[in-house]
């Protein structure tokens, strides 16, 4: 059992949870994730490690309520426990000292991009982070991103904060400024990552994405998370979750993420009905 030592609501349905998990905290590297489970009939879900503190022995997860499990988690308090947390899973992000790295975080994707940005900055790279959300109150971790980056550019779909537009608009502007970009790392909803890759491809800018397919075990034994990259089938949990964005079959990923849409809706309905 893994105790929630701190819980903060970042918006009405986005929460930040610090969890007591010393062995995971000790080993966690940027880009890695955990698989967790709540309750004895619970499902296993992956969440990227947004931060870790090996001295305190804790990891931080940031999640949005998108289904039954994340909704139940949203209702937990400090002192409550998660039944199972396993990690750190996946290959760590490849961090280097680069001239200019652009870290693009869309919506909830800002949380997993945070340790990546920080890693590159600590390695001596110049890090420009582009963070975007639909509206100001959905922007998360602004202070953390400031600390983790050389420069932060904010945008919102509705213009309530920062530039009025999408992260791709800001990125295009940055590319047009002319400074050579060594790497773009993009994390966020699939359509966002796909749009970033479409944008960078004609410029030949190397782009890494962090994929979030459905997972069950997270250690390479079931194949639920298989994605097609460069025509080959890869398991996101052991070969990724980072992949070369220009090689990813995003339309297949999008379809595969929808496999249990009906079951997910049914589960949410039951949960909502039961809590009324």
């Amino acid at each position: 059992m893994f105790t929630i030592v701190k819980k903060e609501d970042l918006s009405h349905d986005v929460h930040q949870m610090e969890i007591d998990a010393p062995y995971i905290a000790r080993k966690a590297k940027p880009g890695q994730f955990v698989i967790l489970r709540v309750g004895d009939t619970g499902e296993r879900i992956p969440l990227t490690i947004a931060d870790s503190d090996s001295n305190a022995g804790t990891i931080t997860l940031v999640f949005q309520e998108v289904g039954k499990t994340t909704m139940i988690m949203g209702g937990l308090e400090e002192g409550d426990k998660l039944d199972d947390v396993v990690g750190p899973l996946g290959l760590p992000s490849h961090i280097d000292k680069l001239g200019l790295v652009v870290c693009v975080g869309g919506g909830i994707g800002i949380a997993p991009i945070h340790p990546v940005a920080r890693g590159f900055k600590e390695a001596g790279s110049r890090v420009v982070s582009i963070v975007g959300a639909r509206t100001k109150k959905l922007l998360i971790m602004e202070d953390e991103m400031e600390k983790a980056s050389t420069e932060v550019r904010v945008c919102t779909d509705d213009g309530s904060c920062g530039q009025h537009g999408f992260v791709t608009n800001v990125l295009e502007g940055l590319i047009e400024e002319g400074n050579p970009i060594d790497l773009v790392v993009a994390i966020g909803p699939v359509p966002m990552m796909e749009a970033v890759c479409k944008l960078t491809k004609p410029y030949g800018i190397k782009t890494t994405v962090s994929l979030n397919p459905i997972m069950v075990d997270g250690t390479g034994m079931c194949g639920a998370c298989r994605v097609t990259v460069g025509g080959d089938v890869k398991f996101a949990c052991v070969d990724g979750p980072d992949f070369d964005g220009h090689e990813v079959d995003f339309s297949e990923l999008r379809l595969r993420q929808r496999m249990y849409l009906q079951e997910e809706r049914d589960a949410i309905e039951t949960l909502t009905y039961m809590s009324e």
């Binding site: 062995y23 995971i24 080993k27 199972d84 947390v85 396993v86 990690g87 750190p88 899973l89 250690t219």
Partner: peptide
């Protein structure tokens, strides 16, 4: 001890 992946956790 469950939830330990030797090769990752240790």
């Amino acid at each position: 001890v469950n939830n330990v992946v030797v090769g990752k956790t240790f």
